[in-house]
């Protein structure tokens, strides 16, 4: 009765290609999710060109630039971490992943200072200064807080994934032959970078 017949195309096989494909499909959903916000941005920007321009002067270009460089660097370290593990050097891989997490923390700290500066100036929706702004500038700040906030949330989630992967590499569950989890976390991290690549010019560089 208990014969062990297994189909060659079993869903229980370790299938790195399947999980990679699943990850890419998930990234599509993330792209479209942020896409909805970019759509809203496009409409309101086209209706309030001058107000968006004026409001954007409240952001600090150099902080934005610094954060862009931080994220790009973290993208490089996570990509290198994959190469390191593929070459059979888990120690180096773990080191590069910690560098990525460090970059994530730096990004969040800079973001924290930017946001608290806005709060101090009363630019958060509902605060005094905000309420006196013309409508277009209100929309700009609404979008700014929503989009960078959601992006920040993704930075945190991506960072958590990378920490998990670090521990899985340490325990040997993610290794030279089975590294799809690392690759998927890397893909997710690149997506976070990708979104920021568009957020940066749309909010900071419309001078």
């Amino acid at each position: 009765m208990n014969h062990h017949f297994t189909l060659p195309n079993s869903g229980h096989n370790y299938d790195a290609k399947a999980s990679k494909m699943g990850m890419w499909l998930f990234l599509y959903t993330e792209l479209i999710l942020f896409g909805g916000l970019f759509l809203v941005y496009m409409v309101y920007r086209s209706l309030n060109q001058d107000a968006f321009l004026l409001a954007s002067f409240n952001l600090n270009v150099w902080m934005g630039t610094a954060n862009t460089i931080v994220l790009l660097t973290s993208s490089m370290t996570v990509a290198m971490a994959i190469s390191a593990l593929q070459k059979g050097d888990p120690k180096k891989s773990i080191f590069l992943l910690w560098m990525t997490i460090l970059a994530a923390l730096v990004f969040l700290v800079v973001k924290y200072f930017e946001w608290s500066a806005k709060f101090e100036h009363g630019l958060f929706p509902g605060m005094d200064h905000f309420n006196q702004l013309p409508n277009g500038e209100k929309l700009y700040f609404n979008l700014y807080f929503f989009m960078t906030g959601l992006h920040g949330l993704h930075v945190i989630v991506g960072g958590i994934f990378i920490v998990i992967v670090v521990f899985k590499i340490k325990s040997g569950k993610v290794n030279k032959d089975r590294y799809q989890l690392l690759e998927n976390s890397g893909l997710y991290w690149h997506l976070v970078d990708l979104i920021w690549i568009y957020l940066f010019p749309l909010f900071y560089l419309i001078h």
Binding site: T6, S10, H12, N13, Y14, D15, A16, K17, M76, A79, M80, I82, S83, Q86, K87, D177, R178, Y179, Q180
Partner: peptide, 20 residues
């Protein structure tokens, strides 16, 4: 978990540090 498909299941290409 079936182990036999591991070899074929990952893509071969390893990107160099230089390229990154």
């Amino acid at each position: 978990k079936n182990q036999h498909s591991i070899e074929e299941s990952h893509s071969e290409h390893i990107t160099s540090y230089r390229e990154h």
